[in-house]
Design a protein around this nucleic acid. Sequence first.
DNA 1: CCAGTCTAGCTAACATCGTTAGCCTGTCAA
DNA 2: TTGACAGGCTAACGATGTTAGCTAGACTGG
Lengths: 174, 174
Amino acid sequence: MSELSPRAQEIVASAREVLEDAGPSGLSMRALADRLGIRAPSIYKHLADKQALENAVISAGFEEFAAALEAAQAEDDPVGAFAAAYRRFATEHPHLYRLMTEHPLQRDALVPGAEDRASAHVLVAAGGDPALARALWGLAHGLTILELNGRFPADADLDAAWKQGLDAFRARLP
Amino acid sequence: MSELSPRAQEIVASAREVLEDAGPSGLSMRALADRLGIRAPSIYKHLADKQALENAVISAGFEEFAAALEAAQAEDDPVGAFAAAYRRFATEHPHLYRLMTEHPLQRDALVPGAEDRASAHVLVAAGGDPALARALWGLAHGLTILELNGRFPADADLDAAWKQGLDAFRARLP
DNA sequence: CCAGTCTAGCTAACATCGTTAGCCTGTCAA
DNA sequence: TTGACAGGCTAACGATGTTAGCTAGACTGG
């Protein structure tokens, strides 16, 4: 991703607001322009296209996500601390989380390292085993996105589901 | 979902083909009409709107998914059999799987029971414990959709990740 | 101090999308 | 024979992302 001008960063920040208010489908170039008090075509003076806009929002999301995971590290029960922070971030920013995960990433268009920084934490939580880390990530993402998408029955005890899944992983760590 | 006329069922079958060929974004009313040799507005004589069309495709997908899980049941290693069938279905029909899972379901618009039939199998695989079943579902969906979305490094050993995750669950079953 | 260039807005317009209104033609029953 | 209905059609609307081309203002070089 090329550097963003200050104005472009303002636009990206507004896009983030529109996204959180109105969801992915509400994030249109015209809606964003409205919030900025300009017209939609003017946005293209600062960002190549909508994809670049979304990539910038996603990059910022990864930075924030990584910071949240970082802040939650714990010596005892690293798995639980990771999972709690993961779930918390997703439920606090559901639209952002969906945007960050629902499509294939255009990695060369993101700020480099943001994704790595986030994914490094799951590796730590899994005691350094990459395969176990990917499985734990799968569990966390799966439970998270199924919950966000309302796929579980309304009366399902999701805390219990998380606990069962995490206990299974805890048992495989020293 | 109300009953579908024979013609509507043909249209839904064509929609499934368009979806598998061109992905969700390629499934437009006009593209579907093209394949049928008619004009887009004519589709509305048979289906209320695009959402109804997608719901019908999703319903059919759940039937097929349930059948695939059913055919794969195994006495020994029910977790492994479930997971293999799950992953296989998703990788063989990636666009359909995505359509089935990427949005909140409009349950009252689906053919009743299709979803239940599919989700019953994960409960069996988890030995009847609903919380464990949801965790297993989360693991399977998470690994599946992260793989479909190309979120893992190209050289990641995903078989190993599945094995690690499934072993963790196997260890918690009698 | 003027001329030129760049910045960042604007309007008009295009293709594509889902969708609606209204028309027409063929089939079939009363 | 007449009338209803099924299932096509065209024309059109509003929303979407995006492009082309214009313009007002700010800065900069001579």
